[in-house]
């Protein structure tokens, strides 16, 4: 008796035709970039393990922030304040260590700073209902100002060798600690997004906020949580900057929001919310790092790198839009 009702019109099934190549473009692009630099920069030592590990070191801060940003963008929001948070956190962490509170003090200071700013962002977005773009545009400026003001733009050196080892320049055997940081958080973020109710509700909130709310998702709480997440990770990224450079400095993280958002979008997370991928984000981040590294070796300066990053973001979103329309 259980006749299937559908015979007339089959629902679309994913076939090779429906293969969302956009979701995987970042992998092809990454391989393409690697091959391009390997050939064009073979004499400059691009492909040496030393340089490749360098890319990982330089990319760690962007990667950590991009992991958290994946959650924010998946809910359909954005956080522009990550770079400024990293700067302020590096300084607060350095000051705490300088004041004799040790590594733990530095950690609490840096991460706590990030959480506080994340909380402010989150509350303004959820309670005051200001669009996140405006909220974080505001805090981006304000926090940057705070970072410049707290030491009157002077850097704060960190002489604690253990701190600098754990949070920056250390290697365990051949493996840089920064690679370990990246790997650990990538695994955590991936499980959070794919395998927990939190991740599912993040995607639901971004996919259709009303529907999510009617299904019992506390969408405001979810949004608050994702801003806390970017705050936390940007705070940690600030400490990683400090550890790598042996100092806190207001200029750390400058322009990072561009790289971070580019990494997330390139990875295949939808700027319109509802679709997110951690693996894509990490590959996107490594690609940005690789491009930066390659451009530096080629002799291009920061200004030229910025131009290229800007173009990459626009291209990534343009591809994304095209795929959405279909």
């Amino acid at each position: 008796m259980q006749s299937k009702v559908s015979s007339i019109e089959k629902p679309a099934t994913p076939s090779l035709k429906g293969f969302e190549w956009r979701n995987y473009i970042v992998y092809f692009a990454f391989v393409g970039v690697l091959i391009y630099f390997s050939i064009s920069l073979s004499d400059e030592g691009f492909l040496t393990s030393g340089n490749l590990l360098n890319i990982v070191r330089q990319t760690a801060t962007i990667s950590l922030m991009a992991l958290a940003m994946t959650f924010v963008i998946s809910t359909g929001e954005i956080d522009l304040s990550v770079g400024s948070i990293a700067a302020l956190s590096s300084l607060v962490g350095a000051l705490a260590i300088q004041a004799g509170y040790g590594i733990i003090g530095g950690l609490i200071g840096g991460v706590g700073t990030g959480l506080v700013v994340g909380l402010i962002n989150g509350l303004l977005v959820t309670k005051v209902a200001i669009p996140s773009f405006l909220v974080t545009l505001g805090t981006m400026g304000a926090i940057k100002g705070a970072a410049m003001w707290v030491t009157d733009t002077a850097p704060v050196p960190i002489v604690d060798a253990n701190f600098n080892f754990i949070f920056g320049s250390g290697d365990i055997g051949p493996i840089p600690v920064l690679l370990i940081w990246t790997l650990v958080f990538t695994v955590i973020a991936h499980i959070l997004l794919r395998k927990t109710t939190f991740g599912r509700q993040v995607l639901a909130t971004g996919g259709n906020e009303n529907a999510a709310r009617f299904s019992g998702v506390k969408t405001m709480k979810i949004k608050l949580m994702v801003f806390l997440a970017t705050g936390l990770m940007a705070g940690l990224a600030g400490l990683l900057y400090a550890g790598r450079m042996n100092a806190g400095r207001f200029s750390f993280g400058e322009g990072d929001e561009l790289s971070v958002i580019a990494a997330v979008i390139l990875g295949g997370t939808s700027l319109f919310g509802g679709v997110g991928t951690i693996i894509g984000t990490i590959v996107g981040s490594l690609m940005i790092g690789t491009i930066n590294n390659g451009l530096i070796i080629m002799g291009l300066d920061v200004s030229q790198q910025m131009i290229i990053k800007g173009i990459i973001i626009i291209l990534a979103v343009a591809f994304g839009k095209k795929a959405m329309k279909r």
Binding site: L203, A204, N208, A211, F214, G274
Partner: peptide, 8 residues
């Protein structure tokens, strides 16, 4: 107005 999450 459909109340499903299109992306899930």
């Amino acid at each position: 107005e459909f109340s499903l999450i299109p992306t899930l």
